[in-house]
């Protein structure tokens, strides 16, 4: 592999001690150790992300166990085809992300960059669909808490316990937090794309691509559960 020299491999000048690739931080012995630390950190972070979302899933299951009829009735107001379309977008973006990481792995930076752009495009498409869905909910007053139907018919007078505002509260918190993750993911993908274009990655060093990929797959993973639970209650 030594013939596949990295762009940064010769940037040792000025370090004042032994040679090492530019991508290797001083506090690591070798690239494997650096990569291992970075990926372990990422998996730990993903673990905390799962724990955070698990609280919301638990809230959902609790609401559903207490007010099954209400959840059943009001999930009909979510457009399941919009949800299915978004599932399609996210799963496809996960594929392109995985292929982008693979391309970086085998040193095809150009292909990797293109696949990252496709991933970003699918992420944006997801957010556009989400925007359309949210707009429809706002318009019809399908909102959490006090805001439910407020500007449509002067607010909710009764049925506070187990009312539909609970369902839309859970809906907006879960899809909202997920949407924030999609937006952050898009931002990270842009950053990785720019770095890829600058030739920062090679077959020896592509850990950031891989870690952003892990984050993006996690976003997909959460949606895989959100979609049937919110849109397909039956």
């Amino acid at each position: 592999m030594s013939t596949a020299v990295d762009a940064g491999q010769h940037a040792e000048a000025g370090h004042g001690h032994d040679a090492h690739p530019a991508y290797l931080q001083h506090h690591f012995d070798n690239p494997q150790q650096q990569e291992g630390a970075a990926k372990l950190g990422m998996w730990l972070f993903l673990g905390t992300e799962l724990l955070m979302f698990s609280g919301l899933f638990l809230a959902y299951f609790y609401m559903r166990s207490q007010y099954p009829e209400m959840v059943h009735e009001y999930h009909e107001y979510l457009n399941k085809w919009m949800g299915a379309l978004n599932t399609l977008f996210l799963i496809t973006s996960s594929l392109t992300m995985a292929l982008a990481v693979r391309s970086a792995q085998v040193g095809k930076a150009k292909l990797s960059g293109r696949l990252l752009l496709v991933t970003i495009a699918f992420g944006l498409a997801f957010m556009v669909v989400k925007y359309l869905e949210y707009s429809a909910k706002f318009e019809h007053g399908l909102l959490p808490g006090d805001a439910f139907a407020e500007h449509v018919a002067g607010g909710v007078q009764a049925g506070w316990y187990g009312g539909p505002q609970l369902f839309f509260g859970i809906y907006f918190i879960m899809t909202g937090l997920h949407g924030v993750h999609v937006l952050i993911g898009i931002g990270l993908l842009v950053w990785i794309y720019v770095k890829t274009q600058r030739g920062a990655f090679s077959g020896n060093y592509y850990t950031p691509v891989e870690n952003v990929g892990l984050y993006w797959h996690l976003v997909d993973l959460i949606w895989i559960f959100l979609f049937p639970l919110l849109y397909l209650v039956k």
Binding site: E69, M70, E73, Y77, H140, G141, L142, F148, A149, V152, A153, G154, G155, V156, Q157, A158, G159, W160, Y161, G162, G163, P164
Partner: peptide, 25 residues
């Protein structure tokens, strides 16, 4: 009372409370 009277039936009224006897609210 129905929770919300919405035009063109987009949003249905809140489900009726089965037991009016004890309304926590």
């Amino acid at each position: 009372e129905p929770s919300a009277e919405v035009k063109d039936g987009e949003a249905a009224p809140a489900p009726e409370v089965k037991d009016g006897e004890a309304k926590p609210a």
